[in-house]
């Protein structure tokens, strides 16, 4: 990459937009995942009985089962949200940025 190309990319407002949008989405989703997982782990460490309560009176399935499933599904869904936006919106923005800067 030559100096001029770097300059052009850096000065293109689309680069700032890409950095801002992609950065915000990846950090937001990372925080959401960390909060979900550590919320789960800390609940187990400090209050295991919360997850051991039956879902309904007299039932066997405990609160922990849907909660555990939720953590698994959320990992998949959060990944999906990121990949979807990155592969459409961000990639489009990147393409425009690269084309404009190469001229």
């Amino acid at each position: 990459m030559d100096e001029a190309l770097i300059q052009r990319i850096q000065n293109n407002p689309k680069f700032a937009e890409l950095v801002h949008k992609k950065g915000r989405l990846s950090w937001c989703l990372s925080v959401v995942m960390l909060v979900i997982y550590y919320g789960f782990i800390l609940t187990i460490a400090f209050s295991p009985e919360t997850l051991g309560k039956p879902l309904s009176a007299g039932g066997v399935t405990t609160v922990g089962i849907p909660v555990g499933l939720f953590v698994i599904v959320s990992a998949f869904v959060l990944t999906g949200i990121y990949v979807r936006r990155a592969n459409t919106e961000f990639d489009q923005l990147t393409k425009e940025l690269v084309e404009e800067s190469r001229q």
Binding site: L25, S26, W27, L29, S30, M33, Y37, V71, I72, A75, L78, T79, Y82, V83
Partner: peptide, 9 residues
């Protein structure tokens, strides 16, 4: 499992 989303992001 939970390391995978972070790898993606």
């Amino acid at each position: 499992l939970v390391g995978w989303p972070l790898i993606t992001f």
